[in-house]
Design a binder for these strands. Sequence first.
RNA 1: GGCGACGUGGCGAAGUGGCCCAACGCGGCGGUCUGCAAAACCGCUAUUCAUCGGUUCGAAUCCGAUCGUCGCCUCCA
Length: 473
Amino acid sequence: MTVRLGDTLTGEVRPLEPLEPGHVRVYSCGPTVYGPAHVGNFRAFTFDDLLVRYLRFRGFRVTWVMNVTDVDDKIIKAAAAEGVGIEEISARYSKVFLDDLATLGIRQPDVLPRATENIPQMVALIQTLLEGGHAYRTDDGSVFFRIASWPDYGQLARLERVDANEMRVGERVEADEYGKDDVRDFALWKGPKPGEPSWDTAIGPGRPGWHIECSAMSMRYLGESFDIHTGGVDLIFPHHTDEIAQSEAATGQRFVRHWLHNAFLQMGGQKMAKSTGNIERVPEIVARGVPARALRLALISAHYRTALSFSEESLDAATAAVERLDAIVAALAAYQSDAAGDDPTVGALLDGAREAFVAAMDDDLNISPALAAVFDLVRELNRRIAARSMSTADAGRALQALRDLDEVLGLLPPADDALTPELQALLDARAAARAAKQWAESDRLRDALAERGIAVEDTRDGQRWRRQVASRV
RNA sequence: GGCGACGUGGCGAAGUGGCCCAACGCGGCGGUCUGCAAAACCGCUAUUCAUCGGUUCGAAUCCGAUCGUCGCCUCCA
């Protein structure tokens, strides 16, 4: 069994064969920190996280790099609007971004390079392109990539048959991009302008173009050729198309082995986008009572190349599903066997679930059947809990098996959760009340615990508690 | 206009030639258990996969047409 992954460039799904056996190098297009990202953006990042977690689960060493674009038109604009430097804007929203990642259980990339800290690398790349005849300067100090010098241009976006003159991009050339030889040519370096940040470099003053940073930073940390590059479908053209052209023109090597592009989050039948106005942000959703883990589930619950519907209903469904997971965790943790011996079929049950999970995820991260494998296991474990057919050790093994799979999913409640003395006292008092059949007192204590966010359930294993997933407001 | 994706139950979403009268999650209905509650379990909830034709022994899965939806082509995850 091997991990198979898609590739936008060829349209096929094929085995992942890392350039360095056992070590996968992943580059993810990260945020432009000009404002807070919305949940639609986080579909990409939850997908990146799922990919990396799964590769590590499968035993690969993974080096994961995600860029942070901290200089670009929008940041300059935002800074100007507030009368502050771009550093202030990018620092502020980098923090917001990292907070949101943490909320969603997205692990931090190994490297989070910033564009402004990689200017020399970009300049070096541009120099190579100039020397190789793939780039040219214009009067305003800008440098453009010469698409005519790169016959393979546009394969990723399947533009090969498109006549340059028919490309609509030609109708929408930005005012500051005059002087280009060909309308399709794109800026590697933007000449200096009053009121804009500028770096003095070997190719003259100015600031980097949009695409060059990803080429420079990915090559710096992952090499001239690496395994996986991720991003949203919207980046296929022009961003990734241009990255391929400039990178391969500079190095003569194949840039990326697998291009993985996630589809959009849909809300109200359209993609969630700032321009459409149908956006929501992570802190807003959490603030109105949606558990962060439910939000994470809602974002990862469909295959990455499929448009995913996002709505109140999908959040409610995800919340209920997460509660189901919480319930099985609490039940397994509380389970005490009635002195029965180990159930000899539990091992096969757990192995079977893991195999089904792995088979699904190996197939281009097919999350739906993988989740189905988990929920099938949950149902079967619930049956056995009800039937009291497992030993206490069986229940422990089952919980561990779930936690193993959760290394990939990131949906289970924390394992090291402990009650405060106050809550524990309430719980103990309720147990005593129940033992004395003081139902009114027992119910009162249950309500008191519920008000403090602890759900108590009575079972043959005694009281069982779990933290209530936040309730909707 | 060019390129591409997609239309599966009340909702979300798997399945891409026979295991499908279609997984899984959510919701609904009925039941079991229980001091009550909750959780859980059991049963029911699409003879059907946008529509119409075709290929095939056999299609949700392949082909064609039609209708519809969405995305990219401009910043965008």
